[in-house]
Design a binder for these strands. Structure first.
Length: 200
DNA sequence: AGACGGATTGCCT
DNA sequence: GGCAATCCGTCTA
């Protein structure tokens, strides 16, 4: 895993560092282009009201997965971080597909590569992540985290308010790779991404 | 014990 | 743009 990736860091510190890191499950996945931070002090977080069976992974050791069912339909993947009891985690919202495109297409019936992993529920489907992944260590198979190629410049970042929440709506804890065509939704003010969208 | 609603997506009009 | 699908923690009684 990338040496600079410190899962003991707070969620809002780790979340931007994850942009550009490659996330694989059984060799299938891509480059993380969109994340969101949550922690126990945050009214928008599942952990805000304390530990429950559903969110228990958020209160356990860092560098494990927190996988929950969204709207009774989709699975969403979080990377637990911070100190024990923080209730901190980073939601992975989108990947730029790079590994195992064929398998991802087989799991998701979309032709457009851009839609393979553009959204928290979509990427878990593409990587075949479900509830059985809850609590799994991130630094062991089937997970794999790969640093960007050595010497590669850090990706330019964009930030904004988080998606789909009703509380703490102004906290800018959504992070993305500037100009990426693979984010779940455009970032306000990301001119490069807007231009890329209009271009095609 | 029962109602409510969500860190979403995809299909319908 | 609207809305169904469908699970479960949380809130109210």
């Amino acid at each position: 895993m990338p040496a600079e990736l410190d899962f003991s860091a707070p969620a809002h510190v780790l979340a931007p560092l994850l942009i550009g890191v490659t996330l694989l499950v059984d060799g299938v996945g891509g480059r993380i282009v969109e994340t969101e931070a949550y922690d126990g002090t945050d009214p928008a977080s599942h952990s805000f009201r304390g530990r429950t069976p559903r969110n228990a992974a958020m209160f356990g050791p860092a560098a494990r997965a927190y996988v929950y069912r969204s709207y009774g339909v989709h699975w969403c993947l979080n990377l637990v971080c911070g100190q024990m009891g923080d209730g901190a985690a980073v939601l992975i919202r989108a990947l730029a597909p790079t590994h195992g495109l064929e398998q991802m297409h087989a799991r998701r019936s979309v032709q457009d590569e851009r839609l393979l992993c553009a959204g928290p529920g979509r990427l878990t489907q593409a990587l075949a992540i479900d509830g059985s992944f809850d609590h799994l260590p991130l630094l062991e198979p089937p997970f794999e985290l790969l640093a960007p190629p050595g010497g590669a410049p850090a990706p330019a970042l964009v930030t904004g308010p988080r998606i789909g929440i009703t509380r703490a709506v102004d906290v800018p804890w959504r992070f993305g790779e500037a100009g990426s065509r693979y984010v779940s939704r455009p970032f306000p003010g990301d001119a490069a991404a807007g231009a890329a969208l209009r271009r095609r």
